[in-house]
Amino acid sequence: MRRTRYVRTFWDIFNLIALAALVGVLAGCSDGVSDSDVKFVAAGMPPQFESFRMYSAAPDSGGPVGGYAHPPARLQQGCQAIIRSASGHFRESVILESKSAESFDLDVVRTSSGWTVTSDGLAPPIVNSTGLRTQFTNCVSAIEDKVRAEPEKIE
Results as ranks from 00 to 15, higher is better:
102 E>W: 04
103 S>V: 06
103 S>E: 07
103 S>W: 03
103 S>D: 15
103 S>I: 01
104 F>Y: 15
104 F>K: 10
104 F>G: 08
104 F>V: 12
104 F>E: 09
105 D>F: 12
105 D>Q: 15
105 D>L: 11
106 L>Y: 10
106 L>I: 15
106 L>N: 07
106 L>H: 07
106 L>P: 11
107 D>K: 07
107 D>T: 14
107 D>A: 03
108 V>Q: 10
109 V>M: 11
109 V>S: 14
109 V>N: 14
109 V>A: 14
109 V>W: 10
109 V>D: 12
109 V>P: 11
110 R>S: 05
110 R>I: 09
110 R>V: 04
110 R>M: 08
111 T>S: 13
111 T>G: 14
111 T>A: 02
111 T>K: 13
111 T>D: 06
112 S>Q: 14
112 S>P: 13
112 S>K: 15
112 S>G: 13
113 S>Y: 03
113 S>G: 01
113 S>Q: 11
113 S>P: 03
113 S>K: 13
113 S>W: 02
114 G>L: 05
114 G>P: 08
114 G>H: 08
114 G>V: 09
114 G>N: 07
114 G>D: 09
115 W>D: 05
115 W>G: 11
115 W>C: 03
115 W>E: 09
115 W>Y: 11
115 W>I: 10
115 W>S: 03
116 T>L: 13
116 T>K: 13
116 T>W: 07
116 T>Q: 15
117 V>E: 02
117 V>S: 04
118 T>R: 13
118 T>D: 06
118 T>S: 04
118 T>N: 11
119 S>R: 08
119 S>D: 08
119 S>L: 07
119 S>N: 09
120 D>E: 05
120 D>V: 03
120 D>Q: 03
120 D>P: 12
120 D>M: 05
121 G>R: 03
121 G>M: 00
121 G>F: 01
121 G>W: 06
121 G>Y: 01
121 G>V: 02
122 L>S: 15
122 L>N: 13
122 L>F: 11
122 L>I: 12
122 L>G: 12
122 L>D: 14
122 L>W: 10
122 L>Q: 14
122 L>T: 15
123 A>F: 15
123 A>Y: 12
123 A>D: 09
124 P>S: 00
124 P>L: 00
124 P>I: 00
124 P>F: 00
124 P>R: 02
125 P>G: 06
125 P>W: 00
125 P>S: 01
125 P>H: 00
125 P>Q: 01
125 P>L: 00
125 P>C: 00
126 I>S: 13
126 I>M: 08
126 I>W: 04
126 I>Q: 10
126 I>P: 02
127 V>C: 02
127 V>Q: 05
127 V>R: 12
127 V>D: 07
127 V>N: 07
128 N>I: 02
128 N>P: 04
129 S>G: 06
129 S>T: 06
129 S>I: 00
129 S>L: 04
129 S>H: 10
129 S>V: 01
130 T>Q: 10
130 T>M: 05
130 T>V: 15
130 T>R: 13
131 G>A: 03
131 G>F: 05
131 G>T: 09
131 G>K: 08
131 G>P: 07
131 G>Y: 04
131 G>N: 09
132 L>W: 02
132 L>V: 02
132 L>K: 02
